[in-house]
Every structure is written in structure tokens, then in C-alpha cells.
Design a protein around this nucleic acid. Structure first.
Lengths: 141, 141
DNA sequence: CAATAGATTAGAACAATTCTAAAGAAGATT
DNA sequence: AATCTTCTTTAGAATTGTTCTAATCTATTG
């Protein structure tokens, strides 16, 4: 599953962004390189920005925020809400859930085929289910 | 289940706060009156503060925040994280889960005996499960 | 009722995020 | 390739929800 978006020079990534209706700009391509390069990742806007700086990528924090939201709207990322103070973005967009280490602020994936939710009532009239999120909060034993 | 905390003049509420190690001050008693008066409620610090103002209760926003956190630590409230932008507090501290209307910013309780989560993997070494939170995100149909 | 520990307050401070308006880059059109 | 239009990026300001601070006040204890 690694290197989902990168061909030799990023043509695949560019193509994928275009399909999503996003211009393949330098900043988006470089951020996509960080995001989708290796294994699945959980990160905040701040941490991605920091990582980009270290990698010598010239990109503003505002653009990191824009890009994360655009990628999320395009279905390339999933936003995970576990903490009122910080937003996390998950590069794993498949069916899965999370452990959350309250103290550490760390997320751990739980495969979707491992976990199941049953007995969900019919949603209120005029609404339908968008997604079922399970967060298993952990504390130090 | 209504009027959990209020006797005729609030003696029960005062007693309950004392048990939790909290002095039964005017502000705490009045906020408890709003919180635990009728049915179960979901509210934010801002909305409780606004409600207090309308009810003619003289209390600062800082005290509302303090009180919500103290009540939460004392187990009288439960904090629900569904939106990165706002914190919700739930007066229902029993076993249950939530529907969340993304657009409306509204929470709806799901009784704990209706819904079940199975297949939770063993938590990582050195940690234990604190709580399993299920949030069913709704969109307009 | 004085002493003390704890609580409340207004406003400042803070952190995460969003907005703004100007400058820059992509893609289409000639 | 020059031009035009539209989208994108940017730095910094603004906003939002929340926490902190230091002074004042209040509930409880002796």
C-alpha cells in the first residue's frame, strides 16, 4: 500500500489531484509526498507544517490548513475528532476505528474488520448516517 | 429522574456537591439548578453561560468553565468530543452513546443498552480502556 | 468573628484555526 | 510565447474557544 500517490516524478499524484478538481501545485504535490509516502499516518496541521519545514519545503501554515481541508473534502484524507484542542488527519481512508492515548495524544488504527457496532437505532427523520466513529480512550494501566 | 439535585431549597444539591469535595457556593448551586433541573441536556460553556445570564444568574464565563470541569471531574457531567471547535457537556452520565447532527451541532442520546461494540482488540501493553465512545454522524438525507 | 483556604471575577493571554487582501502560478486562448 | 482569467499561496491580522492571572470575595473552621 505504500507510495500510493508517487510515480517516479509525481505524475500519478498530479493526476490524482486533477481528478479531485485540485490543481497540482508545487505545495500540494510536496505535501502529498509527505502525507502519502510511506505507511498510514495521523497528523495535525502544525505537525505537518513542521515536517514540511524540516524537509525544506517552502509552504505557509495557512496553505497547510487549506490543503488538509481540500484533501479531506476530496476524500484523500479523513479528519478524526478525538480531542477538543487539536484536529487530526488520517491518511488511512478505509473502514477503521481508533484507540486514543489520552495522555500521549496518540492515535492507533483498529482495522474495520476487527470491530463492529450493532444495534444502531434508526436515525431521526430527515437525516441519514454519514459515518460511525468509534474512539476507544486509553489510560495508563 | 428529573430534579436530581434540587430539594425544596437546594439542600440535596449542596449535599451532593460537598460529597464531591466542592463547596456549595451560590454560583455552583445555581448552575447545578440549570444543569440538573429537567431532562438530560447537552450544552457548551458558552450556551450555559448565556442561559445563566438570561435567568438572571450573576456568574462569569470563567466560572462556568471552572464549574463544568469540576463537575466533570466529580463525575456529575460527562464531556463529549464530537467537534474540534466546541466542547459539549452531557448531564447524562450513564452508559450511552450519541448521534451527532453535523450541520445543526446537535447531540442526541442513544441508550447504552441499544448499541453494542464488539471485537475491540486488546489495548496496547501498559494501557487500559477508559471508555468506548461511539459517535454516529448524521447528514441531511 | 477572625483566620484561612478555596472560589469568583474581569480582563489579559493563549493556541488553534480562519480570514484578508495582495502577489504569484496554472491552464486556457490567442 | 504573450496574455488573460481563475485559482492558489502568503504573511499577517482577526477570530474563536478556552485558560490564566492577580485581586477580591466567601464558605468553612477554630
Amino acid at each position: 500500500m505504500a507510495r500510493k500517490l508517487r510515480g517516479k516524478g509525481g505524475e500519478k499524484a498530479a493526476e490524482r489531484l486533477r481528478e479531485a478538481g485540485l490543481r497540482p501545485t508545487r505545495q500540494r504535490l510536496e505535501l502529498a509526498g509527505l502525507l502519502f509516502c510511506d505507511e498510514d499516518r495521523h497528523l495535525s496541521a502544525e505537525s505537518l507544517h513542521a515536517e514540511a519545514q524540516e524537509a525544506g519545503i517552502k509552504v505557509s501554515l495557512a496553505t497547510v490548513y487549506n490543503t488538509l481541508h481540500q484533501f479531506t473534502n476530496a476524500g484523500l484524507l479523513r479528519q478524526v475528532v478525538v480531542d477538543a484542542a487539536r484536529s487530526y488527519f488520517d491518511t488511512n481512508i478505509g473502514d477503521h476505528q481508533h484507540f486514543y492515548c489520552e495522555g500521549e495524544g496518540r492515535l492507533i488504527d483498529i482495522p474495520g474488520d476487527a470491530i463492529a457496532v450493532s444495534g444502531v437505532p434508526t436515525p431521526p427523520r430527515g437525516t441519514e448516517i454519514d459515518r460511525v466513529d468509534v474512539v476507544i480512550r486509553l489510560r495508563r494501566a
